[in-house]
């Protein structure tokens, strides 16, 4: 279970560029819950994921994963329990290295990298078997540099790598956004399949309301660094795309309600 309390992050504090990307975030994600984060551009979704992954230290607040406070842990240490897929299909793999070599790194995630041969025959067989489940024909191209694959294929492999060692938490940051519609649908379906099969706890950022409604069990809506709405188990069941759009519209209108409008309402709302 992921437990976030009072998480806050301000970039460039005290300068003209000061951006408060996260304020007072409280979030609980139960074990086995697949949660989507939606929100306008710049609402702090990626920042939240980065904070959980440990890309930077938060200004305040705590993050607890499976009962362990990981707030002070460096990114690489957290990565032992957290799998990640990035928005950029090129970010999750090392382009010049072969598929097998990339996967080998993921196979030992969170363990010491030893001085044994990386792509041993045993490892190779295991890799071939699991890559075959992707149904992309990649099992015959294990020695090709991963940079020669398409974005969708790379993203599918990154997903496979992120979940190779069952992570306590899977972080997906708009991982289908940079793909063409067909690959995006394929990767989204794969995501859902893996998460359900392994019963993973996952946090996915998405801009697609359709995805937010269809894939996860829980929706977290962010705006200006805050969580403004959550659709948990029961409400999630009845939520439609239009409801999410309405919720965003409400947020937009809430921002429109400035002191002038407030004065207007004070006079005429009676």
């Amino acid at each position: 279970m992921l437990k976030i309390r009072n998480l806050a992050k301000t970039f460039f504090p005290g300068t003209a560029n000061e951006v408060t990307a996260l304020r007072d975030i409280d979030l609980d994600i139960e074990d086995g819950c697949f949660a989507a984060i939606i929100g306008t551009n710049g609402s702090g979704k990626s920042t939240l994921l980065n904070a959980v992954a440990g890309a930077f230290q938060a200004d305040a607040g705590s993050i607890e994963l499976a009962g362990v406070d990981i707030t002070g842990q460096p990114e690489y240490r957290r990565a032992g329990q957290i799998g990640r897929v990035f928005q950029n299909p090129f970010a999750g793999t090392a382009a010049g290295m072969s598929i097998a070599e990339n996967i080998v790194l993921a196979m030992r995630r969170g363990q010491r990298q030893g001085l044994r041969r990386a792509v041993s025959r045993k490892a190779r067989e295991e890799i071939r078997a699991r890559v075959r489940t992707l149904n992309m024909g990649l099992e015959d191209r294990l020695d090709n540099p991963i940079g020669t694959l398409s974005g969708g294929q790379r993203q599918a492999l990154t997903l496979l790598m992120a979940t190779w060692q069952r992570p306590k938490l899977l972080l997906l940051d708009e991982h289908t956004a940079a793909l063409d519609p067909k690959s995006a649908a394929q990767v989204a379906a794969l995501t859902k399949e893996i998460i359900e099969r392994e019963n993973l706890t996952a946090l996915m950022v998405t801009h697609s309301m359709q995805q937010a409604v269809q894939l996860p069990d829980h929706i977290v809506m962010m705006h200006q660094g805050r969580i403004i709405e959550q659709y948990g188990a029961q409400r999630k069941a009845s939520v439609r795309v239009a409801d999410l759009l309405n919720a965003f519209d409400r947020v937009r209108r809430r921002d429109l309600l400035d002191p002038d409008v407030a004065a207007l309402l004070a006079r005429q709302y009676a």
Partner: peptide, 15 residues
């Protein structure tokens, strides 16, 4: 509740 900014929690304006 009727004052800014609290009023944002109670009323929405068509905008």
């Amino acid at each position: 509740a009727g004052r800014f900014p609290d009023i944002r929690d109670w009323l929405t304006f068509s905008g």
